[in-house]
Design a protein around this nucleic acid. Structure first.
Lengths: 111, 111
DNA sequence: CAGGTATATTCCGTTATAGGTATATACACG
DNA sequence: CGTGTATATACCTATAACGGAATATACCTG
């Protein structure tokens, strides 16, 4: 199977995923929003589907596609090993925000 | 310039980045740890360098390569739009771990 | 400056993939 | 059941990228 990384290497596929991030959409919907030929959309959706990024359900003649998170989580997990390279900046920002907000959050575990 | 996504689509390049995540390394070091021909290593390092993933410094005849976080941060930023798809599960895991750990962390903001 | 070590580059052949066009399948509805 | 709409697939071509082998460059040391 295609690796999650090679699948999202394609700009059109990232654009499709971006669209689906906000809502479930039909092929024709994607086609017109991205101004992309319909066979291209279908082909990219096939790749996305086979790699587990999306799933579809039938609605009359249309197929409605939506995000499946698993492969994206895999990418996220791979990225984890590098977060310490920029977490120092994030921590600095966090400290800054802590100083700014004078009301201490009682249950401070959630961001 | 090559997109950060296409650069990390290559398994050998992800392997190199993984190695560099733990320490700065020379080309020969990478070569033997990954059992990969030296020209391949150099060529992948060139791609990584030109895309901003790594930088090198000179140490006698050797070049020592280390991570630069910017392109990885870009990938991380792109992933952000999808986190809500699995954050519910992460929260569930977090609650589970909270229940498991009977000693409440006094300064619970850091993990 | 000669020889050795470390790394980079060039050249080449193979292969995978994206895009375009045409066509096929699926479903709805009169 | 025929026509229109929505989506999928097949076929083809061009191009880009990887890997391998050979070679070039850089730098150190005696």
């Amino acid at each position: 199977m295609e690796s999650a990384f090679t699948v999202i290497a394609e700009p059109s596929r990232r654009a499709i995923l971006h669209l689906l991030a906000s809502a479930e959409r039909s092929v024709g919907d994607i086609e017109e929003r991205l101004r992309m030929p319909q066979p291209s959309v279908s082909k990219h959706l096939r790749v996305l589907r086979e790699a587990g990024f999306v799933e579809s359900r039938v609605d009359a003649q249309r197929r409605l596609y939506r995000i499946r998170p698993e492969p994206l989580m895999e990418v996220d997990a791979w990225l984890a090993q590098f977060r310490r390279f920029w977490s120092v900046h994030v921590d600095a920002l966090e400290r800054h925000l802590d100083r700014m907000s004078q009301v201490p959050a009682k249950k401070g575990k959630k961001r």
